[in-house]
């Protein structure tokens, strides 16, 4: 019996199987779109925003006004090693909310981006 193809297949499998990994990194808690939807410009206050979204990741002073940042980062890393060749793709996306307040602490503007679920495992040559 010719065992050469079997041996070759086993060696190739042994080389390929332990040489790939995927990993995922999340930074900060996900932002709840429902909680975000409960905030109303001109009505909600800083206390309301704190109650709905929790503590902000950053606070920026804009004269007498202020803006708060919330973000949730999601990265997916797919890496394959073929002996000495490494193919790596890292896709990082974010959920972000910026809430702008006037000098009285009333919400004047708010903007959100919910993309964190769009991170993908891909090869570097994928579209």
């Amino acid at each position: 019996m010719n065992q050469r193809p079997f041996l070759l297949g086993t060696v190739l499998l042994g080389l390929l199987l332990p040489s790939c990994f995927i990993s995922r990194v999340r930074v900060n808690e996900a932002i709840d779109p429902v909680a975000y939807g409960r905030l109303e410009v001109g009505k909600s206050t800083q206390d309301d925003v704190l109650q709905e979204l929790g503590a902000p990741a950053d606070i920026v002073q804009l004269g007498f006004r202020s803006a708060w940042r919330y973000d949730h980062t999601h990265s997916k890393n797919a890496t394959s090693f073929f002996v000495v060749l490494a193919l790596q793709n890292v896709d990082t996306v974010q959920d972000r909310v910026w809430a702008f307040f006037d000098e009285e602490g009333l919400l004047t503007h708010i903007g959100a981006t919910f993309d964190a679920d769009k991170a993908e495992y891909q090869f570097p040559f994928s579209d």
């Binding site: 002996v83 193919l87 790596q88 890292v90 996306v93 993309d115 570097p124």
Partner: peptide, 20 residues
């Protein structure tokens, strides 16, 4: 040599994307 060096020498093809 290829097998022995695979843990410390790599030819890399990388892509890193941040946001859209």
């Amino acid at each position: 040599i290829c097998l022995a060096c695979s843990s410390c020498v790599r030819v890399q093809w990388n892509r890193a994307m941040f946001c859209r």
